[in-house]
C-alpha cells in the first residue's frame, strides 16, 4: 500500500489515484437503532495496529469504492475487493 494498490477492476495503480474514505468494517445502523449505535458508527473507531479494512475509492480510475485490507504497521496489503461485493457479502 501507500505506493501501489491493485484495483480489482483496473490492475496495479499508484496511490495518488485513490481517495481514502475510512473504516470499512462499520455497518450503518438501522434508522431505529439506539443513539449509542449511531454514535459509535459515526464517531468511534477500532483503529487497530495491524489488519484493518478501509474504503479507498479509485477516483482516478473506475470510481469504485474498494475495501482494502491492509496492515497499519507494515503497510502490507492483504486483499482488495470491490466495495459493493463486500457489502453484499457482509449482509448490508
Amino acid at each position: 500500500m501507500a505506493s501501489l494498490i491493485t484495483c480489482p477492476h483496473c490492475g496495479v495503480r499508484p496511490k495518488e489515484e485513490f481517495a481514502i474514505r475510512g473504516d470499512a468494517s462499520l455497518l450503518r445502523p438501522a434508522p431505529t437503532a439506539s443513539d449509542e449505535a449511531w454514535h459509535d458508527y459515526v464517531y468511534v473507531r477500532a483503529n487497530p495496529r495491524g489488519r484493518t479494512l478501509e474504503h479507498w475509492q479509485h477516483v482516478g480510475g473506475c470510481r469504485r469504492f474498494l475495501v482494502v485490507e491492509r496492515d497499519t504497521f507494515t503497510h502490507e496489503v492483504h486483499s482488495v475487493t470491490d466495495g459493493a461485493a463486500f457489502a453484499r457479502e457482509n449482509g448490508r
Binding site: 500500500m1 496511490k15 481517495a19 481514502i20 478501509e54 497499519t72 507494515t74 503497510h75
Partner: peptide
C-alpha cells in the same frame, strides 16, 4: 491519508 502506526510516509 490512511490510518497507520508506522512512523514513515509515502
Amino acid at each position: 491519508g490512511y490510518t497507520s502506526y508506522a512512523q514513515r510516509g509515502n
